[in-house]
Design a protein around this nucleic acid. Sequence first.
DNA 1: TAAAATTTGACAGTTACTATCAAAAGAAAT
DNA 2: ATTTCTTTTGATAGTAACTGTCAAATTTTA
Lengths: 199, 199
Amino acid sequence: MSPDDKRTMGLRERKKAKTMAAVQMHALRLFRELGYNATTVEQIAEAAEISPSTFFRYFPTKEDVLLRDNYDPVLVAAFEAQPSDLSPLQAVRRAFVSAIADMSADELAMVRERDQLIMSVPELRAAALNNLTQTMQLIAELVAKRVDRKPDDAAVRTFAGAVIGVNISVMLYYAERPDADFAGLLDEALSKLEAGLPL
Amino acid sequence: MSPDDKRTMGLRERKKAKTMAAVQMHALRLFRELGYNATTVEQIAEAAEISPSTFFRYFPTKEDVLLRDNYDPVLVAAFEAQPSDLSPLQAVRRAFVSAIADMSADELAMVRERDQLIMSVPELRAAALNNLTQTMQLIAELVAKRVDRKPDDAAVRTFAGAVIGVNISVMLYYAERPDADFAGLLDEALSKLEAGLPL
DNA sequence: TAAAATTTGACAGTTACTATCAAAAGAAAT
DNA sequence: ATTTCTTTTGATAGTAACTGTCAAATTTTA
C-alpha cells in the first residue's frame, strides 16, 4: 500500500507503488460517484494521469483495481500466531477475528465500502468469489501444515471449503447491512460451524 | 431442455426451446474443439444458424450459454422428498446424492465435461461461483422451511454457506480428477461436515 | 385472409482488453 | 557529466463482447 522504505526501493519502484495507489484511489472514488459499470477505464486513467495502456499494465482487468489486496499474508500471520492447543477451527476463527481487530477504523471503513460495492455488482462479486478459491487453497495449506496432513486430503479440503463458504455467507449478509459488525458476524458464524451447525 | 409437451406450448415456444438447445449444443462442441476463449459468439451463432443479435437475446452473456441449467428444481424436489426424521444436513446430503444418482450416464458425462471446462476457465468459474450464491440462498430457504425458521436466521445462513462451500471444494477437486466419482466425493465431504469436520 | 403481436437480423456504436513499437525516464558504467 | 543499457510509458490499431434501434419476417389472433 504505502511506498514502503525509501532506502530499500529505488526511485522506480517507489514511483510504481505511488502510481498504483493513486490509480486505486481514483478508481474507488469514481466507482462511488458514477457506479462501477458507468466508470470507464479511460476515465480512471485520466484521473490518475496515466494512459489507458498503463492502466492495464498495472491491473490486468478493470475488476482488479478494486479487488487486489494483500490480506493473505495478514491471515497467514494471524493463523500461525494461534496457540497450538486450539483446534484448527478455533485457530481459524481467532485468526480471522484478530486480523480484523488489528485494522484501523479507516481501514475497516474501506473494507466495508469495498465489500458493499463488490457484493452489489455481479461482475465484481463473481471475480471476488473466484479469488476466494485461492484463499480456500491457502487455508487448506495452513491447516494441513498444522495437523500434519496433505492439503489435498479430503478432510482438509472439506474443512477449507466449509470455512470459505461460511465466510461467503457472512460477506453476502454483511453487504446488505452496512451497520452490522463484520468481525462479530464472522465470529458468530464460525462459532456455529464449530458447534456442528446447530439448528 | 427438451421441447416438452407439444400440446401445452405453441409453435413459437417450441421453436424457441429448440433453438436454445441447438445453440447450447453447438457452443459446447465449439468450446471443446477450440477452447472457450478462442470460440467467438459469432462462430456459435453461425453454427446454430442464427444471427449474433439473436444469440444475445437467448443468452445475456457468452458464459450463460454454458452455465444455464435447471438443476435447482431437481434439488428442491430431492430435498423435499427426504423423510422428516433426518437432520437438515442428512437431508441435504441425501438430496444431493439422490439427485445425482437419478441422472443418466449421458447426463452425468455432460455434467463432468461441463464441470471441467467451467472450473478451468477463470471467467466461467467466477460466473459459476456467483450462481452458487443463488443456490446457497435456495438451500437457506429450503432448510428454513424445514426447521421453521427465517432464511436470514444466522444459523440457517451459516448452514447454507457451509454446505455450498463444501460443494465448491468438491467441484474444484473433481474438475482435476476426471476419473473420480462426483457423487461419492460429495457424499464423503458432506459426511465429514456432518461429523463436525474431524481432522 | 387481414390485423396485431412477437421474433429476428442488420447495422452502428461502446468499451474492455491485446499487441506492437518507438519515445521517455531511470539505473549503471565510464 | 556523459554515455550506454534497461525498464517503463504512451500512441496506435485491432479484436470481441455486448447494447440499442428499427425495419422485415414470422407466428398468433380475429
